[in-house]
Design a protein around this nucleic acid. Structure first.
Lengths: 180, 180, 180, 180
DNA sequence: TATGAATGAGTCTTCATTCAT
DNA sequence: CATGAATGAAGACTCATTCAT
């Protein structure tokens, strides 16, 4: 029993939502795993959905203000670094929840949308820095950024469903090659 | 009231599963929308999950045997054609269900995995045809194919969640450019 | 176990609502007394309040179309007859419910309002018949009718709360005396 | 925030009980409206019902000792004065509570019974004063008093439910007329 | 094949009340 | 006195599934 009751409830919910999904997880099971009485869950989270919302609010963070770490002249390595350092502060369980429950509540979908937007923004900015002389071809950079973001999200989500892996470094290489 | 009872049940379920999701759709509501008595649903589909399985079995088809339509010497147009003609025979509602309920039952996930595999296979094959002299770089082709497949699936699924569109033609162009 | 399940549920609810009140009666207790499983109550009455509404709809009737039975020249006996034959078809239990749960749902309040209106209408009409020569003093008749109706409702309701009885015959006499 | 905590709790309860009823008012809501922590409610009133009892005890007073203000020779005006000055010291909200919650607790019912008794007593006494030569007909006076009391209580309670108003002055006139 | 009443386990949620601080 | 976290029994309501007809 680590942490206070509220934290333990969120810990339990994170584990259970990631495992069986939000709908399939009764509040009673959350309470049991958290070692708190059932009523206490509703003391902190009046509705079951509030647990999910709190998880997303408090345990995922899309980093939107940080600078991008580009390697001038080397777009491939620049993208690779991006892939290795997603602007998403969240445990693997929370990442799972973020994708799995995007339909469950608007706040989850919002967070996912922001992650996607931030991914694209960073990829584009990183490419601009890496290719300072990429004169004018903004549209092409945009497509490259969106493609890379799509691949990264695919890795995070669909990949688990389809069973196919993609190596982001290889994709980075590919995209870089297309921009020279 | 179109079709026999079984068909109407599947029609109703397709609409409801796509709209509110499998878990959130009671069998009673399926029966009501299908204009059949509740008991009849269980006559045709002993378990609720059987409705979903039947939908996926009967109303989605991953075309795995067809030839690929490549444009020799023009990988961009080749991929574009692929994007325009996904090897998935399914209504928009069924596509939605396929992605949304991938966690619900193994058969859905399987179907999705096969779609992904087929997408990659086709993209790679199409690229091989389009670039007959692809200088041995099979790995690169593989990455290009996987990337394109990821973008297409992203279009089908995540795109709705994140609100960002990608133009497959532009991605085709980008990938083609990286292969020359 | 008399009657079908739906009837038994209403029988049980009538008894329990009259005894302990609507709020204090759990649906589970209704089911137990009716010898039906809990779920069946909700099969027939999706919400608990629907049980009350059905009771009022089906088991109370304010007779609004019947003729009034007046004794010409004898307003006292005319009112007495009215008191003996309230235009309300309802068991004693339903009468209790009607007054007790007037705040619980609009349909109960409506029914009560109609009873009151019908009582006044009848009393006035009966007095008009009993006193054919009551020249012009319509206002006085109206007050007499309303007063008598108030006493009758008081008998039905407040009387149980306050513990004081009023003899309607004596009130009839009093009112009659005031009209000559 | 007016008054001390206990007073604020009672203020809040008065408002809420009159509005939604005792059963439908959680103690937590009382506490919130009173701007006191939930525990404090139970510090002052160990059981929820004690709040209602305290309200009735402290905020309703049936004046049982006062003299009656009769107009000799004019029973109509005597009753009118009575109607204008009910022997009940209580806010409109408390009056509502008194009738609405008469079933909830014995002390409320008692208070209501005493109000009714006092009303009858006063009406009878006032009529005796107004009609000093009332020719022995004590029974008739009693009926007149009870009728008037019934109308007054009807005004206070049922009237809100049925939507019909009665003018007490007109009833006073009617009753007076029946006594001469 | 068709029907809808019947079943009961399970779910979310409420809330009076307690109690350590 | 004051506080709000803690408790758990109980309530309304859901729903997949069964089954007699």
């Amino acid at each position: 029993m680590i942490g206070d009751a509220r934290t333990r409830i969120l810990d339990a919910a994170e584990e259970l939502f990631a495992g069986g999904g939000y709908e399939a997880t009764p509040t009673a099971v959350i309470a049991r795993l958290a070692h708190v009485p059932k009523g206490l869950v509703f003391h902190y989270f009046p509705r079951k959905i509030d647990v999910l919302v709190a998880l997303v609010d408090e345990r995922t963070l899309v980093e939107e203000d940080r600078d991008v770490d580009a390697v001038p002249g080397d777009p491939a390595r620049t993208l690779s670094k991006l892939a290795r350092r997603l602007p998403l502060r969240a445990s693997p369980a929370m990442r799972r929840i973020l994708f799995r429950e995007a339909d469950t509540h608007g706040s989850v979908k919002d967070r996912l949308g922001r992650l996607n937007g931030e991914l694209i923004r960073r990829a584009r900015f990183a490419l601009e820095l890496a290719l300072p002389g990429a004169r004018g071809d903004a549209a092409r950079l945009e497509v490259a950024a969106a493609t890379f973001a799509a691949v990264l999200l695919y890795q995070e989500n669909l990949c688990q469903l389809t069973g196919h892996q993609i190596d982001p470094d290889a994709v980075a290489e590919l995209i870089a090659h297309s921009l020279v």
